[in-house]
Design a protein around this nucleic acid. Sequence first.
DNA 1: AGGGTGATAAACT
DNA 2: GTTTATCACCCTA
Length: 204
Amino acid sequence: MTYTWLDAPAADVAATARTLLGWDVSGNGVRVRLTEVEAYAGTGADPASHAHRGPTPRNRVMFGPAGHVYVYFVFGMHWCANIVCGRDGEAAAVLLRAGEVVDGIGIARDRRPHASDRDLARGPARLVTALGLDRDANGTSAVDGTGPLLLTPPVEAVDPARVVAGPRVGVAAAHDLPWRFWLADEPSVSVYRRHSPRRRPAPR
DNA sequence: AGGGTGATAAACT
DNA sequence: GTTTATCACCCTA
């Protein structure tokens, strides 16, 4: 399968993020319709991006071909998934922030037993849990069916008038860049929270 | 509704 | 040693 955004340069990552709204992502028996994403640029271009300071062992798949999955671990307990954008050698990615479970809801409920249906994929770490992903998905393709994740175009086209843009959630840097995109009036969109600085543990 | 905070580990400086 | 693209839970209204 080939899509036009797979050939887009990394500089177009914000447009690609918009494009991916309304797409379905399926993994391990659960299908989610994307309602919220964020764009992250490459080396030097975006202080909030993991690729900002160049390639490292963690972010190397961001520098690979588009359509692959970049999975990373945050806060000691959560996994988050991105779709890599840009040409091979360029770094950019779209963070999958939230979606609505449209298939396999029973499985999704089992994976997060205490959440309401609306919350099952509301937030990047919850979305990853709903899809049953972990580090094994890192570096796999999300467009050719060889990996655990598969992206498919919207069944019903998204009305561009419903797309809203704003600052990214929880990021410490580039707070003024409106690179978070979501669909208006979707209950599965995560609530906005500004980055809150961590305090050091109190000395004893 | 909204704000604060503890949990907990890896990557990076 | 410091930071972190989060979540769940507890508090005040």
